[in-house]
Amino acid sequence: MTTADAAPAAPLTTTPFVGVDVASGRAKKKLTSRWASLVAVIIAVLWTIPTFGLAISSIRPQGDIQDSGWWSFFSNPHVTLDNYRAVLSSTGTGGLGSYFLNSFIIVIPSVIIPIALAALAAYAFAWIDFKGRNLLFICIFALQIVPIQVTLIPLLTLYVDSGIGGSFWAIWISHSIFALPLAIFLLHNFMKEIPKELIEAARMDGARHVQIFFRVMMPLLTPALAAIGIFQFLWVWNDLLVALTFSGGTSDIAPITVALANLSGTQGTAWHLLSAGAFISIAVPIVVFLSLQRYFVRGLLAGGLKG
């Protein structure tokens, strides 16, 4: 969660309405200098090397992987798709197929539920005046401090007592619980930035809260919702701890991360399959990220002035 904490906060909490041109112009000037570009390229290359090595490893034959590092691929190139075949086949060592489906079943409600709830809650905190609003908001914000590890056993006990232990519900609800404090906080900050005049104008036209929320807020919020959606998606997709604890590891509901953890075998003898498994697992987040990344840019530049 740490990356998710830091990254979106910056674009979302800046004030894009006052002097947006000046600020972005200055930023543009600084960021497009030749040296900055060079540093950016170097960082990008350095950070991509491990992933690149993983990609190379995944297409090398078992013997090569176990004997030598991925860089020796260039002097001794052997390409095979056996690793991918072994990982995907249900009869072979792993069989990631059904776990892949489980991951989707887990991730979609685990993104939609917290974002829907957080948007409503954030609206209430930002634009509805009620007693104890600030105190309640601080309490929710403070919930982020609770480490999820300490909640695992008590939560599982609650699920078991209420009869939903070991079902998808347990995982969906847990991910929603863990996502809500940050999502409410971020969306609240974003909604607060929307000019009061816009809301007042809508009220003058006779709009109630429900209409303001759906007709005025939602279109403006799209970039923020997309940003939070991406982070929640990545977090849930890559999560092992929550899924493992609440699914109990059964193949009916366990996600792909659980299968990946078991892929190398009891004695770890099949570790050559890990790189292929990892690549299959990250394919989906990459697609989601690339298809939604324009919202980041929109969130950064357009802000609340759109529409």
């Binding site: 056993i153 599982l156 006990t157 078991v160 604890t245 109990g248 953890a261 078991n262």
Partner: peptide, 16 residues
Amino acid sequence: DKSFETQVLVQAKAGN
């Protein structure tokens, strides 16, 4: 599941 040793304790403590 390879994480059996920790998970089985969690499950036993939580009651499932």
